[in-house]
Design a protein around this nucleic acid. Structure first.
Lengths: 353, 353
DNA sequence: CTGTTAGCGCATTCAA
DNA sequence: TTGAATGCGCTAACAG
């Protein structure tokens, strides 16, 4: 069993009877004679030597840490992203530092400040709201940043976005094919990025199919949670009688499902239901919920790869990746066991990430 | 707008026309004359100075980071814990570093090694399996460790555990009160810590109530996931006809619910169902699932506080916190709207955390 | 191939 | 109260 006390390069060098430079070289795999390497390794083992991260960082400027900041750790979709980011960066030798900011842009600006202290080599950020001030702070930041989400065109930052317009279109198209006409929409807050994007997707899709998107068919929950979803769904069902409902995420969909069930409405017989994000809860729900897959895992993976690329070449040109959504058809949108389990994509070539 | 270039103490000192020592003092709130402080602060602002984390760490030995390692980032119960740990340590000025090891003890041992590189001041660990080797590594570690989970008595580490035996007892007791007799059990892998604990809780509880815990009433899923739960539940229902089922966690419970529904069995009319962990999915399920609350949030909070305490006083005696479970009664275990929504606890004083 | 040495940026001791 | 100087542990440039 190796020593438990903290040891340093100098101690190892002393024990091996060589210079600390030699120890450093051997341990970093640089050329050295076999015998010297032998002795160094023996000494290092005996002392249980582990290099000190902060000293190395101070010298090299690298921390081997990547920060991941997300608005809501409670939302499964972010967990999915995080999981994937972690997987990719870990394989490249980086640790993931989780920085849960709230939804507030101000907090994220604070994060940027502390990032400049140098505790991470880069930041992957998935902001819910994108204030002008945050954009400025992002621009001014000294270290690599990858944004997951849509960005103004003139912001020169690596980012991966998803075509949520196309996502909603998939959902509406599918519902129309099932013979639905009065398609309701349970959105999240419209002052968020996803909120506005999905609303415009809904309006566009409805127009495309010549369906009326009347005001009574639309509600917005106060946030993207189950609880807010229950209230919003209740409001919707109080003011109209849709034969199908699209929800802005799966949590809202589960909430809507519950609300429907409690009112004695059957899913999908009376009302068809489609969620978004294709998280586990869509699969777990009863009936299982058809959901637009916005590629959370793919987005996480793409973002992580963009980060690794930028770290490898800080001068490289800005790169934007667009993820195409697909539709996972489940029980909630298809009558009596016909066609459930399908997987529908827009047919474009998926952007390689 | 402050300079975007990286600045150092020396630069600030130069600009303010003082020594770097003075700058350091002012910025760390140590006594200095008003005018000097004034000038230092002005210069620091103008340069957008932020202290470098690694240099400070190298000097002080503190990183202001706490690592949190968990077997399965996909399990909501760990997300809940993590969330709470993050909240508590953040308030004390620490960042949370997420280290997702797999379920494999070997990976966790690797983590301990790299921890000694000094990238974190402490580790909060919630192991699924606890090999002798891991215990040894834990013991040998140089930095503070808090374990979430049950530990052999002779291991001198701060830890917070939950009385899962009592938890199962709550579930069985509740089911018996509902008039159920043939109580089945869907467990996770028995070679895990929770798996063995919950199995013995089941057996003890059944014996306590004079019920037969025959072999055909018990199955073990290959892991604690939905998918494995489906298979296990199918097996259980193939080999016996329970009038109630206790599941080792909520994911397994949702899976069992689905399996029951697909076989045309009604919950709770035909079969009552109880899960464990009291995660969101229990609430979201349809019908909502009664669940034993093993206090994930409370455990996270307690663990974080133990860590802060140990950091503040490394020489303090080992402390163990025991969390008492409670039962959240929902639709899945109570016939026709009587008594759902109750919250049952064993009546012990809850350990203050 | 190996040793000597100079910082990386900061907190801190010691003088003044 | 303030400044000068030291060293945390390491890597890399340079010298031998």
């Amino acid at each position: 069993m190796p020593e438990t006390k903290k040891s340093t390069l100098a101690l190892v060098a002393e024990r091996a009877g060589v210079s600390i430079a030699s120890v450093s070289r051997v341990l970093n795999g640089q050329p050295a004679s076999v015998q010297l390497a032998e002795r160094v390794r023996a000494a290092a083992d005996a002392l249980g030597y582990v290099p000190d991260a902060s000293a190395r960082t101070l010298k090299t400027g690298r921390t081997d840490q990547i920060a991941f900041a997300v608005a809501d750790v409670g939302n499964p979709v972010y967990v999915k992203m995080m999981h994937e980011v972690e997987r990719v960066v870990a394989k490249a030798g980086y640790r993931l530092v989780l920085s849960s900011t709230g939804a507030d842009p101000q907090e994220q600006i604070g994060l940027l400040g502390s990032l400049n202290r140098g505790f991470a080599d880069g930041l992957v950020l998935s902001p819910l709201r994108l204030s002008a001030e945050l954009v400025d702070a992002l621009r001014a930041s000294r270290l690599p940043i990858v944004i997951i989400g849509t960005l103004p065109e003139d912001v020169e930052l690596d980012n991966v976005r998803v075509d949520s317009m196309a996502g909603i279109m998939l959902a509406v198209d599918h519902l129309v094919q099932q013979g639905r006409k009065r398609i309701g929409f349970v959105n999240g807050p419209v002052d968020t990025n996803p909120g506005t994007a999905r609303l415009s997707g809904y309006l566009t899709s409805m127009a495309e199919f010549g369906l009326a998107a009347t005001a009574d068919l639309q509600v917005a929950a106060s946030d993207f949670t189950y609880k807010a979803g229950r209230k919003a769904a209740a409001r919707l069902l109080g003011q109209s009688s849709p034969d199908a409902i699209v929800c802005s995420n799966d949590l809202l969909a589960v909430a809507t499902l519950k609300e429907l069930t409690e009112r004695g409405l059957r899913v999908p017989d009376d009302v068809a239901l489609v969620g978004m994000d294709n998280t586990d809860v869509a699969e777990l729900a009863n009936p299982s919920i058809t959901s637009v897959d916005l590629g959370a895992a793919r987005r996480g993976k793409a973002a992580a790869k963009l980060m690794l690329r930028r770290l490898a070449d800080p001068a490289a040109g800005v790169k934007r990746v667009v993820i195409e959504p697909t539709l996972s058809v489940r029980e909630s949108s298809v009558r009596a066991g016909v066609g459930a389990g399908q997987h529908i994509s827009p047919g474009y070539e998926e952007v390689r990430a």
